[in-house]
């Protein structure tokens, strides 16, 4: 369990993290979402004690990380794939890190095999591709068989096979009763991996709830209707407060009404329905809706920038 308590971090005049409190629970994968510069990496560095909080503190299973006598087995972390000396082989990197807690060759070879780097383990880490560096970072995180994992964008640079591997790995690890906290910008991936979400924007917590609740709270929910009498049904729906999102011949997408109400309205007005379904938005659209005004860096498409 990670308890973040009233945590703030100020760099010069940037308030990167602003009085943030939350708990990362044991046994589930918790996703950490937020736009660029929201403060995710800063929060994670403070969890590890690498950055000193301006205010507040973090408890890892009840103690501060710096006070741990068994840091690698308490908490494994991946912050940046580039936290490796480039003059050293992957094998020797893991040996050096593991040696601090007397973790020997057997375990080193085990994690190398887990991340699939057997064939290049003696190769200089300078020659590694982004994905290979990322795998080495994940191997380093897993080295101490940690009870807690903190991973900053672990799928960054992984190929589709690697992404699927890490998704299943994290779910398995959580099922064993470990605490897993990961950030990612890949919403579709996060949707498949995380059970719980913590969303941060401009240094403040915007949401802390289950994935299911987060998505179902979104106003992007709508009801999908197919009816041969679409024209008349549209006017029935709008006069009862429904908002027509799109209409394509017989197919209607209506929001602001529940599927039950839509069904009842059809019956009351003797309208035939060929299809009636609740459609939940993707995590991506729910996230975009929540963070619309929290985005610090907006891109512009080609038309706009002319």
């Amino acid at each position: 369990m990670i308890e973040v308590r009233e945590l703030s971090k100020v760099y010069g005049d940037t308030k990167a993290v602003d009085n943030v409190s939350f708990t990362v629970k044991t046994g589930v994968v918790t996703g950490f979402l937020g736009p660029n510069g929201a403060g995710k990496s800063t929060t994670m560095r403070m969890i590890l004690g690498l950055d000193k909080p301006t205010h507040g503190d973090v408890l890892i299973n009840g103690q501060r990380y710096v006070d741990s006598r068994t840091p690698l087995s308490l908490l494994g972390s991946l912050l940046e794939a580039k936290s490796v000396d480039k003059g050293r082989s992957a094998y020797n990197h893991l040996r050096a890190v593991g040696a601090t807690m007397g973790i020997g060759k057997t375990r080193i070879n085990e994690v190398i095999e887990m991340v699939g780097l057997e064939s290049v383990k003696k190769k200089n880490a300078a020659k590694f591709s982004l994905g290979m560096s990322q795998r080495l970072g994940i191997a380093t995180a897993l080295l101490g068989d940690p009870e807690i994992l903190v991973l900053d964008e672990p799928v960054n640079g992984l190929d589709p096979d690697g992404i699927m591997w890490i998704r299943n790995l994290l779910k398995d690890l959580a099922r064993q009763g470990r605490t897993i906290f990961l950030s990612s910008h890949l919403m579709s991936e996060m949707e498949l991996t995380a059970e719980h979400l913590i969303v941060i924007g401009k240094g403040k917590i915007l949401a802390d709830m289950s994935m299911h609740e987060f998505i179902s709270r979104s106003s992007q929910n709508y009801v999908q209707v197919v009816s041969p009498q679409a024209d008349s049904f549209v006017s029935v729906l709008t006069s009862n407060g429904g908002i027509i999102r799109t209409r394509d011949k017989n197919s209607i997408e209506v929001s602001a009404l529940s599927s039950a109400t839509v069904g009842d309205l059809a019956l009351a007005n003797q309208i035939a329905l060929h299809q009636l379904a609740d459609v939940a938005p993707s995590l991506e659209s729910a996230f975009m809706e929540l963070t619309e005004d929290q985005v610090s860096f907006h891109g512009h498409n080609a038309e706009e920038s002319k």
Partner: peptide, 27 residues
């Protein structure tokens, strides 16, 4: 059900850090 690491009894010690630094140096 919370997980217990199999290296929970491996403590971080000064001498182990010595060994770690030696592995770093020689590689």
């Amino acid at each position: 059900s919370s997980y217990t690491s199999r290296f929970r009894d491996n403590k971080l010690t000064f001498l182990r850090v010595t060994n770690s630094e030696w592995i770093k140096f020689r590689s």
